[in-house]
Amino acid sequence: MDSYPTEIATDQIRLLTKVARMYHERGMRQPQIAQQLHISQPRVSRLLKRAVELGIVRTTVIAPRGVHAELEEQIEQAYGLTEVIVADTDDHADETQVMRALGAAAAVYLETTLMGGERIGVSSWSSTILATVEAMHPRPTPVADQVVQMIGGVGNVTAQTQATRITGRLAALTGAQAVYLPAPGLLASADMRQMFISDPNIEPVLRACDDLTMALVGIGSIEPSPLLRESGNAVAESELPALRSAGAVGDVCIRFFDSSGRHIDSELDDRVLGIAADTLRAIPRRVAVAGGTRKSTAIRAALSGGWVNVLITDLQVARGLIVRS
């Protein structure tokens, strides 16, 4: 049985309990309680606060079905993340179903947290980011200033349309200016990249990447996604063995990292036309929308390496992040 400080009289405990029951169980408003008990409303407020302090009132949050608050908090603490959102997915969901669930969860997150003045960098070749913008609703007032392509968005025609849609639609939905990077994301040589960098249409876009407040990215496994492969911006099959030998398990914005999340500095970096690894990791809010068991290792590594600090993922991947953390 609970005990209370001896200096509190029994009649005081009785009043505290009575007020607490009237407010929390019977749903009465504080003015009603004050009127019925013939005490002031400020006193009712003080009594309710005291009831909490003494443990007479204890608040319990019960997560509804499909909400995984405890799991999200465990991942946040394990990897030092600002926020984790776990989309409720079935154990047997295929990649398309997972992507849809991730897109819907990410859309709600963005609609809730974009408050105005943001400069958002987006990954050009991410299927999950495309699913996100497809699921979003337009905001009644502008909530961002710019949406910037962080990787070159020029590629094979069909895929390029999708990359352009990511940037253009997100800008339209948030009332922002769309800033496109009109060049391939991965070039044939470092010399070709240098030529593009000197182009007056390219340099201002890369400079805009230095001042982003938020990044919205996917996380890639060592095997490129269908969208990236179709774009013509994927690493060639012949180059994958060297990446694997260097320990690469995944990438963010075509910047590869090993299983500990350490950036793999290779000649490939000199051919990427887009945001630099250090610049990316310095952005205050770095949101990854990524899931599917195929990407589990890459997602874990990206979290360990600090590539992102907000994760939106599916239930199966989330459970795995805790099991092996």
Rank of each mutant, 00 (worst) to 15 (best):
L15I: 06
P42V: 10
T313V: 07
V157H: 14
T89W: 07
A188N: 13
A105H: 04
H263N: 10
E70I: 10
R285K: 13
S325P: 01
L15C: 00
T279W: 02
E72G: 06
A87F: 05
T17K: 09
R26V: 00
R271L: 04
L71P: 09
S296T: 15
D251C: 14
M99H: 11
A188Q: 14
P226H: 06
G55R: 11
F257Q: 08
I299H: 10
A190V: 01
G305R: 09
A178E: 13
S124M: 09
L173K: 12
A290G: 15
E7A: 02
M115W: 10
P140R: 08
L303D: 08
Q30A: 05
P224V: 08
S304M: 15
G153T: 08
A101F: 06
L81D: 01
M195T: 12
L216T: 00
S304E: 13
D191T: 03
R43I: 02
T164L: 15
T60Q: 10
K49W: 03
T96Q: 08
G220L: 04
A178L: 09
R324Y: 13
V98H: 02
E203R: 08
E134G: 12
P241T: 10
A106M: 06
A69E: 11
M28H: 03
F196T: 00
I202Q: 00
D2R: 14
R58P: 10
R169F: 04
R255E: 12
L303S: 09
V317I: 12
H24T: 03
Y79D: 02
Y23Q: 01
I197M: 02
E76K: 15
T10E: 11
L315Y: 10
A106W: 02
D191V: 02
T297V: 15
L71C: 07
P140G: 05
S304G: 12
L110T: 07
P200W: 00
E95T: 04
F196V: 00
L71Q: 07
R281W: 07
L16F: 04
L71D: 05
V289N: 13
E76Q: 15
V133E: 03
A159R: 11
T113E: 12
A69R: 14
V143A: 01
S238M: 12
V308C: 13
I39A: 03
P184T: 08
S238D: 15
M28D: 01
L243Q: 12
G155H: 03
A69T: 12
T297N: 11
L268A: 02
V148E: 01
Y79S: 00
G116T: 08
L212Y: 00
G320Q: 06
D94T: 06
A234F: 06
A298T: 09
S40R: 04
A276S: 14
I151F: 05
V310G: 08
P5S: 06
T60S: 07
W307G: 10
D11R: 12
S221F: 01
T174I: 07
T279F: 03
A69S: 14
D145V: 07
R165Y: 13
